[in-house]
């Protein structure tokens, strides 16, 4: 996680943050892929951009995706308390793909890594989409604005469809070119030195497993509590003060979200 802060010393990474944010907004806002329910849910091809940018620009993509969400809210007139959770959720959506990949596969090209690579890529896609859905859904449910049971799954599923459909194609077309230009994050930030230390590598693997487990726990708990399939007792057990209201969702999801946070710190 250290590179998320040290990258601000590097001018190229700062520029790539801005480029990531602008590219995300420029593709996300105008291009509507498939409208399912007008005004509520549509699958946009732009949702795949953070995954692709994350593999290319690493920490710059994480910040860029977060900033991109703020810009999209500002340009759409939707700047509000939910924008904070939008920033956090999108930040993780841009952070996890490269961080999880690097933990298990090092600096290998994601589109030329064989079956093991494809399997990991699939897990990363699912985890990232569950995490963004969980964080944003949890935040707006906590504010009692939109129920998690509606928003969380919509965000996760829509992002997954868009990412699964085109992220591999985009990566195959862009990775080699960006590598040739010397703009991949590990080319700019230098070779990974701290990650070569055994205990750091082990901690990162534990972090990755915590993130993946946390994503599933938070998402499933949130959906089930919100849709009233799981008794409010789970929410109460998980520190919720008012298990009858939306605090049940907030409390029920808290352990999963804490695992994600802890895992992200270790990555």
């Amino acid at each position: 996680m250290r590179e998320l802060f040290s990258m601000w010393q590097n001018t190229r990474m700062i520029v790539l943050t801005a480029i990531s944010a602008s590219a995300y907004v420029a593709v996300l806002l105008p291009f509507k892929g498939f409208v399912i329910i007008p005004g509520l849910t549509e699958v946009r091809p732009g949702a795949a951009i953070p995954i692709v940018l994350s593999f290319l620009f690493g920490p710059a993509a994480a910040w860029g995706t977060g900033f991109g969400n703020i810009i999209a809210d500002a340009l759409g007139g939707m700047l509000g308390p939910g924008s904070f959770f939008g920033f956090i959720g999108n930040f993780f959506y841009g952070y996890l793909p490269y961080a999880l990949w690097r933990t298990f596969m090092g600096d290998n090209n994601p589109v030329q890594s064989g079956m093991k690579g494809w399997l990991l890529f699939g897990i990363i896609l699912i985890t990232s989409c569950l995490v963004i859905g969980s964080i944003i859904g949890w935040g707006v449910d906590l504010l009692r604005l939109v129920p998690f049971g509606a928003l969380g799954p919509i965000i996760a599923v829509n992002n997954f469809i868009a990412s699964a459909a085109i992220s591999t194609v985009l990566l195959a077309l862009l990775y080699g070119r960006v590598h040739m230009w010397g703009l991949l994050y590990f080319q700019i930030l230098g070779e990974r030195n701290a990650k070569s230390m055994p205990f750091v590598r082990k901690a990162a693997r534990i972090g990755a497993i915590l993130c993946i487990a946390g994503a599933f726990i938070a998402f499933i708990a949130g959906t089930m509590i919100s849709c009233k399939s799981l008794g409010a007792g789970y929410g109460t057990a998980a520190f919720a003060s008012d298990a009858k209201g939306t605090m049940a969702v907030a409390g029920g999801m808290a352990p999963g979200l804490l695992l994600i946070l802890l895992g992200a710190i270790l990555l």
């Binding site: 943050t17 801005a18 944010a21 907004v25 910040w63 900033f67 991109g68 703020i70 810009i71």
Partner: peptide, 11 residues
Amino acid sequence: SFALTLSFRLT
């Protein structure tokens, strides 16, 4: 904040 300004400008 510079990156954010630049993003707004580039969008």
